[in-house]
Design a protein around this nucleic acid. Sequence first.
DNA 1: TCCTAATTTAGAATCAATTTAAGTTGAGAA
DNA 2: TTCTCAACTTAAATTGATTCTAAATTAGGA
Lengths: 141, 141
Amino acid sequence: MILSDITDIKQTPQRLAIIEYLELNRVHPSALDVYKAVSEKFPTMSFATVYNTLEKLKEKRLIIELSIDTGKKRFDCDTRPHHHLICVKCREIFDVFTEFILELPEDEFQGFDIIGNHVDFYGICKKCKDIEGLGSEQNKD
Amino acid sequence: MILSDITDIKQTPQRLAIIEYLELNRVHPSALDVYKAVSEKFPTMSFATVYNTLEKLKEKRLIIELSIDTGKKRFDCDTRPHHHLICVKCREIFDVFTEFILELPEDEFQGFDIIGNHVDFYGICKKCKDIEGLGSEQNKD
DNA sequence: TCCTAATTTAGAATCAATTTAAGTTGAGAA
DNA sequence: TTCTCAACTTAAATTGATTCTAAATTAGGA
Ligand SMILES: [Mn+2]
Ligand SMILES: [Mn+2]
Ligand SMILES: [Zn+2]
Ligand SMILES: [Zn+2]
């Protein structure tokens, strides 16, 4: 997503700050993450503005909404097709750009027109492994 | 999941009804779906009981919680490893038991210990295609 | 049968997200 | 440059899903 992609919609200071945050923080932030960060620059900014802006950017296909966490939307400002690597401990999400060939056999189609796929890899990130390692040998999950 | 798997926890009528519903309705229902169906048999049953039971079954690894929909948990009573085929219109979820080889190249590991993966296929289900087809040629999304 | 920890329940609380309605403003028109 | 108004922002109310609470009930072992 680049600024010149923002057409048809007004370039307000709040929107530009939200877009800048998304560009610089490619950690698949939640709406709250965006709000916290951007409201430091715009203390009067409303939560609704964050949601409105994210919704508008989604409509314009400049960002993607992820449903990786239940109960909380997360946003991806990289709209290229790619997969994800998710830490089951801290829920950090990393990008995976390897392409996979995923041919679904005819008999699994269930009458669908298939339009895409997405792979989630699950694991424990470096940071969480290190934390686990601390707290003596008998680690208490 | 079979009844004999239910050990360590009390077999209450409410729980048995919830489990029976899950066994017979393998459409990856939400907590509300479960509540609606089971409360017809137990009109005084509380929503909290549905959540408590689903949580307990999840702990015992007899069901899996899906985060396919943001804002709404969905549950899968088939704990065998498998993938999903999701209708982007009606959000129905079908099972895919084909196995895929998904080798992530070392340089994409990001320091993770990888423990699993899951593929979501997206598409339009038969039912939704048929609905689209109606409403004359110029179909309005 | 008795006992009690586990479970159920109704209702309150919480959290993310959406809606509302009133005030403000970006940017095209004059 | 100024005018205009649809688009936008805002605080507050609302909704919907889920979790918590505290009191009443109960499954199942002793
Ligand atoms: Mn991504
Ligand atoms: Mn499934
Ligand atoms: Zn982690
Ligand atoms: Zn469908």
